[in-house]
Design a protein around this nucleic acid. Sequence first.
DNA 1: AATAAATACATAAGTATTTTATGTATAATG
DNA 2: CATTATACATAAAATACTTATGTATTTATT
Lengths: 119, 119
Amino acid sequence: MYLCTMYSSELIKGTLKTIILNLLKEQGRMYGYEITQRVKELTNSKIQITEGALYPTLHSLEKNGELSTEKEYIGKRVRKYYTLTKQGHNTSKERVNEFADFVNTMRFLLNIETKMNNV
Amino acid sequence: MYLCTMYSSELIKGTLKTIILNLLKEQGRMYGYEITQRVKELTNSKIQITEGALYPTLHSLEKNGELSTEKEYIGKRVRKYYTLTKQGHNTSKERVNEFADFVNTMRFLLNIETKMNNV
DNA sequence: AATAAATACATAAGTATTTTATGTATAATG
DNA sequence: CATTATACATAAAATACTTATGTATTTATT
C-alpha cells in the first residue's frame, strides 16, 4: 500500500463534465456520491471529485438537458439518480472524442511516449 | 486545406503553463508572440493561445522564478525573450510527467484506445 | 502614398470552474 | 454514544481563462 499524490487541481479542470458524462454512459444511472466514489476507485485516488464541484456541475448538466433525474428513498435518506438523456448520450460521445483528440495533440506537442504503466 | 475546429476552451485550461515550460525546454529561449505562433503551427491551429492568457502567465512564471527574461530591440520594436531558470527546468519536467500520468489515468477512465492518427 | 494586416507588448473587466467552507440529516460502526 | 460514512446542497473565495481595449512598429496590399 502506497500513498497516491493527486494531480494539481489545474489539470483536472475542464474534464469534470467529460468524466461524469462518460461514467453515466457506461454505468447507466448513478447518484452523485456514487460518482465521486467510483472515480476515486477507478483512478486509485488520483482524481477525487469534491462535492462542491460535483453538485453544481450535475445541476448545470441537468438544466442543460443532458441529464434527467429521479429521487429514490433509501430508508429516510434521499438519493438523486442521474441518467443520460438522448442529448446527453450525444454530448458524452462528443466530449470523449474531443478529449481523445486533445490528448493526441498534447502528446505530440509535449513529445510524450505512449506509456503503458497505467494507474 | 481544411478548417480545424479548436478545442472547447475548457479543455486547454490548466495545460498552458505545461505547454510553455515544455516549449522553452525544447527551444531554448523564445518570446511571447513566438510561443503563440509555434503552438498554433505545431497543433495545426487546434490550440491557439490568446495574448490575454499568455502574457499574464509568462509574468506569473517569471515572478515565480521559473523564467528569466532579457529584452531585445528589433529596430524600434521591443521583444522580451524568456529562458528557463534551473528551477524552471525541474518544474518543466515535473509538469510534463504529471500530465503524461494524468493522460494515462484519463485514458483508462474514459476507455480511450490509443489512436495514432495524430494532428 | 495610404490603408490594412501582422508583429509585439500589456492590462482590465467579465466569465466559468473549481476549492474551501459551511450546513443539514440519516445510517452504520466501534 | 460518539465518530465515521453516506448523501444532499449552497455560498464565498480563488483561479484561470476569454474578450475587449490600448499602444506602437513593421510589413504587405491596393
